[in-house]
């Protein structure tokens, strides 16, 4: 097990290094002076700042020396400086990361739990009106643009009905502490987390349904039925356990996609996470921030993949540990 985790870690480090090289090449492939690219759109930085940058990144030296300086910095979490925000990029991301982890974490758990429950319910009565309704809804959610659902959710639940706050992380100026603060954040979290979760819920539901139906035709299920076990026990203990495996695999693979969704959700709901940070950076052409968020989000995805791999091995001990 430890060897397996170590192997995966080595692989993750290689992927992160590849991303750094990729980022580095992008900065140099971008139209214009690399120093200006790193400083943000032309005009944002003064000449002294550019000279500093050139000296610091050795922009007058050969490319491989520059690459080495860049990677050495990034490994020590020096992701450059955001001239626009007057702050180191790593610090900016560090401030915003918890909000994103909260949002994506809640959305992920919500979509997985509800998706699996809906999938099981639909497969239990295949062809019934309940199945039809669940399947149709999943088909619709799967085809809906996430940012649009987010906008419509704000419109209906915040503007028209006034049930939930439509933007932000907490009520500004309310100064809640303790439990009141937690409740306040939770209230703000409802709309972003459910819109982000909706799309993935649809995917997990369809996957669970198909997987349940497939497993339920296998021989060991017939055996269980012949033993006289009740329907519910067979569903839960025999079919679901096996049907869950492909769903977990898929969920692990989708960590990157959830982050992509978070960029859109955070943008619409003004949720102060790194996705929103990236959106602001796009508008300001603040390249250091964009590349930094890209790098950190990839690191988060790799970490998440590692966790799902470990969960997978625990759920199904038959899996061979290969790296």
């Amino acid at each position: 097990m430890i060897r397996f985790i170590l192997g995966r870690l080595v692989k993750a480090v290689f992927i992160l290094l590849a991303i750094l090289v990729f980022n580095f090449l992008l900065i140099h492939a971008a139209p214009g002076d690399p120093a200006a690219v790193m400083a943000g759109e032309a005009g944002a930085a003064d000449e002294k700042f550019l000279t500093d940058l050139r000296a610091r990144f050795g922009l007058d030296q050969p490319l491989y020396v520059q690459l080495w300086i860049y990677i050495k910095g990034a490994v020590q979490l020096d992701l450059g400086y955001s001239f626009r925000q007057q702050m180191p990029v790593a610090e900016l991301i560090g401030d915003r990361l918890p909000a994103t982890l909260l949002l994506t974490g809640v959305a992920f758990v919500l979509s997985l739990v509800l998706g699996v429950i809906a999938g099981v319910a639909a497969s239990a009565r295949q062809g019934s009106w309940g199945d039809t309704i669940i399947s149709t809804l999943a088909l619709l959610f799967y085809a809906t643009p996430l940012f649009w659902v987010a906008l419509m959710a704000t419109l209906v639940f915040s503007v028209w009905l006034g049930w939930l706050p439509g933007f932000g992380y907490s009520t500004i100026g309310a100064g809640y502490t303790g439990m009141a603060h937690v409740l306040d954040v939770a209230k703000h979290l409802v709309l972003p987390a459910s819109t982000l979760g909706l799309f993935f819920m649809a995917i997990y539901m369809r996957m669970t349904r198909a997987s349940m139906l497939e497993v339920s035709r296998l021989d060991f299920v017939k055996t269980a039925r012949a033993k006289g076990l009740t329907r519910g026990v067979i569903q839960r203990r025999h079919i679901l356990r096996n049907a869950l495996l492909p769903v977990i695999t898929l969920a692990g693979l989708q960590a990157g996609q959830i982050f992509g969704g978070a960029i859109l959700t955070e943008t619409v709901f003004a949720w102060p996470g790194i996705g929103r940070l990236m959106f602001e950076a796009i508008n300001q052409r603040d390249y250091n921030v964009i590349l930094g968020v890209f790098y950190i989000s990839a690191a988060m995805v790799l970490l998440f993949n590692l966790i799902t791999d470990v969960v997978y091995v625990i759920v199904d001990p038959r899996i061979r540990l290969t790296t």
Binding site: I15, I19, N23, L26, L253, A255, G256, Q257, F259, G260, G261, I263, M278, I282, I290, L291, V293, F294, S297, A298, V301, L302, N305
Partner: peptide, 11 residues
């Protein structure tokens, strides 16, 4: 496949 694809497209 591992790197966040939407973020890559944005970059």
């Amino acid at each position: 496949q591992t790197i966040p694809s939407f973020a890559l497209a944005i970059v």
